[in-house]
């Protein structure tokens, strides 16, 4: 039986990449210390920042919100009700988010995508012929940014972890999506109407985040989003975990070396296209009318044809 390196109690995790075994009491302390270190190292949060956490009801975002408040940051949450009715996914996710808000005594804002966009995410995706995860991502980024701007927040914190980032990196490398690669970073600075976005959990694997959340007795939605089944990100995560089993530390090396050595070169060579206000909503975009406004327009125009046939909710 492995013993905790710090206090010699029975270990609950052995992190081969750190050669570190920790028990149920020491692990959360290590986790918070590491989170703080990442925040400081990347200058993610400045003293005057007003933080909004993108809360989904999953382990990562709830774990992040909890960790930030434990570290003394006054962070509020925003939950987006995506309108995913399968298995009451959105309803249950919202309940978990509300439970944590109550426990940590912080404000949880709730926005309904159906109210904001006229249709829930599955309908927006089907009418625009986009993959559900792609449409969902675009809507989430848009609404989080818009809400944060309108309510005086200066930074949006998301629960992306090392597995998320390494899988995204792998996907972008496989297709040499240089534009996306140039902007994959733990901190995205504010720019022309886009707020600063930070990812304080980039140093942790999904398992490490899940363990922190479980040990702190934070209930979260364990079920995957019904629309993510078969997503390529899951496949890349599995592949990377198989590599990690054989060679501990590979995921971090893959991601961190990219961020330190390659990303700055790409950033220089492929500057972000100029942003301008969307002609319809005024939010920043690279084209005349932003992709979210176009999605919204199509979904609401196509409603009569789509209802009952081919809706992703069916």
């Amino acid at each position: 039986m492995k013993r905790c390196l710090w206090c010699k109690q029975k270990a609950v995790i052995y992190m081969r990449e750190h050669r570190l075994a920790l028990c149920k009491d020491c692990y959360p302390k290590w986790f918070l210390r590491m989170t703080e270190r990442v925040i400081k190292e990347w200058r993610m949060i400045l003293p005057d920042d007003k933080i909004l956490v993108a809360v989904s009801g999953g382990k990562d975002s709830l774990g992040l919100w909890f960790a930030l408040t434990q570290l003394g940051y006054e962070a509020d949450g925003l939950y987006l009700d995506l309108g995913i009715s399968a298995d009451e996914y959105s309803l249950r996710s919202k309940r978990f988010s509300q439970q944590l808000a109550e426990r940590i005594q912080r404000t949880l804002h709730i926005l309904s995508v159906s109210e904001e966009m006229g249709k829930p995410v599955p309908d927006l995706a089907s009418s625009s012929n986009r993959e559900p995860c792609s449409a969902c991502g675009a809507v989430k980024r848009y609404l989080f940014n818009k809400f944060a701007l309108e309510h005086g927040y200066t930074v949006i914190a998301t629960g992306h972890n090392l597995d998320d980032e390494a899988a995204t990196l792998m996907g972008n490398v496989m297709r040499w999506q240089v534009g996306y690669l140039a902007r994959q970073s733990p901190v995205l600075p504010p720019k022309n109407g886009l707020l600063k976005r930070i990812k304080p959990f980039i140093r942790f694997t999904e398992k490490q985040v899940a363990l922190f959340t479980i040990l702190n007795r934070i209930p979260y939605i364990e079920q995957e989003c019904p629309y993510s089944v078969g997503a390529s990100s899951l496949f890349y995560k599995e592949l990377l975990n198989r590599i990690e089993e054989r060679s501990p530390g590979t995921k971090w090396a893959f991601y961190s070396q990219f961020v330190e050595q390659i990303q700055p070169l790409l950033d220089e060579k492929f500057p972000e296209p100029e942003l301008r206000p969307c002609a319809q909503c005024g939010m920043p975009t690279t084209v005349e009318v932003c992709s979210v406004c176009r999605m919204k327009e199509r979904a609401n125009k196509l409603v009569p044809q789509l209802e009952g046939e081919g809706s992703l909710r069916e």
Binding site: K59, P132, E222, S233
Partner: peptide, 9 residues
């Protein structure tokens, strides 16, 4: 057995 993997980022 708790799965820590979540998809659809």
């Amino acid at each position: 057995v708790v799965s820590a993997i979540s998809g659809g980022m």
